[in-house]
Write a protein that binds this DNA or RNA. Structure first.
Lengths: 352, 352
DNA sequence: AACCTTAAATTAAACGTTTAAGTATATTGC
DNA sequence: GCAATATACTTAAACGTTTAATTTAAGGTT
């Protein structure tokens, strides 16, 4: 009999399964969810018979609707998804999230701001809670996520009303800048900034754009750099500050070429990411500029590759993976009020 | 009035919205989904009022249940999720998927085989279709995905009954091996294989393990290498074939150290991935082995970094990103029967 | 004015679950 | 031996939508 059932392509539901096994839908449901609600023998019979016919448990959508929870954790990202698979820092962060989520039997849904098009998708109704990663200024989904009223933890982005995980970007940037500025005898510095302004093109920033109240990661780092410069009595004018719109090697290389071509060429380049710094290393090699003799380069993040470039990168280590782990943990524990500041560390290697 | 509604924290549903706006639920639903079903004026009124009170469209879970489709595309992966955020090839593949998915207004759900624990989660019921990536031998979710009867496209893995996207691994491996074997005067080769056997440790393979009918990617590449070796009258014995359990730099480095320490040391190393090859480069540099003079190293994949190592990697280019794009396209087009073989190309750089 | 057509909105069933409340049967305490 | 309690299972409502079927109103033809 089960043979026949197996071959006829039925889509099993609680109802059809119940009818087939001659029990109520509630009992099937309980067999899967609440073992204490039925006898051991019946439960075993149900489970084996279900396995036989190919019913692998209650439909997730229906369950979610009924229970009002889905077991899905949403990660809200500001850029198109594809971007995050190419950025080593984001990779580590997501990796930390993924690992921790798996430990807690949840599912991971990646939501990108590029979803703005499908304005009525209501996708934010699926997850039970959210990790919001990075700046969300013009992400329409962000507002909806907030309005959903569900638990939120922000990372590398601070909204007063939510729990957050950050590093002290300004202090860290100050530290690395100060390190390299004090090291050289006659320091002249340029900055390769990440996402300083809204342009999608690599460019220098203007005098006006130097001042900006925004509390974004890059602005804080910029402040740290400038603070160190000021204290060391060197000036970094807007013409020495580049904007790189995304953290990709190609864009960074373009900026690196520009900055290494100016005359007089700076002997220090402060990079807001290791990807950018490694591009500078790459261009410098092509131009036969000796590092750190002629040029000091420092990065930020301490991605794995920073230890494999030649010369190896002097940079600021931040624990991106742990950020992801922490964020998930706060959410699963329901501990969504605290503001966490994670430590950073200056890593002295060979590039400065 | 709307002011008051806004402040009282109501969770809006079609029903409550309908009551508030004095129309039926169907009309609200139609306002969001089927503009032709109501007058333009009413629709506009509804949409603006909804925006005002903070109802952003129908709940996705309920909609999915009712419509029997979720707009979610599932990607079934064999290893824990975190693994894929660290592997450059997987990154490119997922990046291609993500980009294409966004273009088609779908959501991406990453499903890993490590989900085996939650045996009754029924997560496979959420997506409308699946991309199955890589070998799925002992992935319990795979069976369930199949049984769901939903459209499937496999990538880097071939099941006769499904559409698939692959490369000719054996031919590509043969080509690169033949290239490097014919180039050296007195060739002696070792192989750094990826996932050749089931062990979680780096090790050599045994005589027995040399033979294996499995059609896995790594076995096909191994066959290609061995075929080239045979044709060039050189033997590669199992003691010269290493198994690296995962495509990580750390594991590869361990294997690289072992292979470069054997005596006599081989002068050719065939690596089944660029990550492995770059680890070999790294270890060789530490041991002051000159490449390509004393040692030829070839990789596989042509990841972006392959062009930035020193020396730059000679490798096989495969279009991982395009694989992802193709897979999504086949699924959204409902074109799920064909078997696609994507081209590969030998990239001659400096490491061999 | 009677009839037909079209347009605009409503009604109500269904999607596949979970679970509080209910019923029937078995077990216990005295 | 009978009420009280425990165990095992069922009933039916609810979760928030979509959509076929229906009703109502308005406009057009003869």
């Amino acid at each position: 009999m089960t043979e026949k059932l197996k071959s006829t392509k039925i889509v099993w539901t609680l109802k059809t399964v119940a009818k087939t096994l001659n029990v109520s839908t509630a009992t099937i449901s309980n067999a899967f969810n609440r073992p204490d609600q039925l006898s051991k023998s019946l439960r075993e019979r149900i489970l084996t018979e279900c396995a036989e016919i190919g019913y692998h448990g209650p439909n997730l959508t229906a369950r979610s609707l009924r229970k009002g929870e889905s077991g899905v954790l949403g990660v809200l990202l500001s850029d198109p998804l594809s971007y995050y698979f190419n950025d080593p820092v984001a990779n580590q962060f997501l990796s930390g999230i993924a690992e921790t989520i798996e430990k807690h039997q949840k599912q991971l849904l990646l939501l990108s701001g590029a979803d703005s098009g499908k304005h009525n998708s209501g996708i934010e109704s699926l997850p039970d809670s959210f990790i919001v990663y990075g700046s969300q200024e013009n992400n329409p989904l962000y507002k909806r996520v907030i309005q959903s009223g569900k638990p939120i933890v922000t990372v590398d982005f601070d909204a007063p009303e939510f729990a957050s995980i950050n590093i002290d970007n300004q202090a860290a940037a100050y530290e690395v800048a100060n390190f390299v500025l004090t090291k050289r005898v006659d320091p002249s510095a340029a900055i390769l900034g990440l996402r300083l302004i809204h342009s999608e093109r690599v460019c220098r920033i203007t005098e006006d754009e130097l001042y900006d109240e925004s509390e974004s990661v890059s602005r804080r780092r910029l402040n740290g750099y400038l603070q160190a410069a000021k204290e060391n009595q060197i000036v970094i004018s807007p013409e020495q500050i580049w904007h790189v719109p995304h953290n990709t090697f190609a864009l960074a290389k373009q900026a690196a070429k520009e900055v290494l071509s100016i005359n007089p060429r700076p002997n220090i380049i402060l990079c807001m990411s290791d990807v950018i710094a490694s591009a500078v290393l790459n261009v410098a090699a092509e131009m036969s500029i000796s590092i750190p003799n002629e040029l000091s380069v420092v990065g930020f993040d301490d991605i794995p590759e920073a230890n494999r470039t030649s010369p190896r990168l002097t940079t600021v280590c931040q624990k991106s993976k742990e950020k992801g782990e922490q964020a998930v943990l706060m959410l699963v524990k329901g501990e969504t009020i605290s503001k966490i500041l994670m430590p950073t560390k200056l890593i002295e290697r060979d590039s400065a």
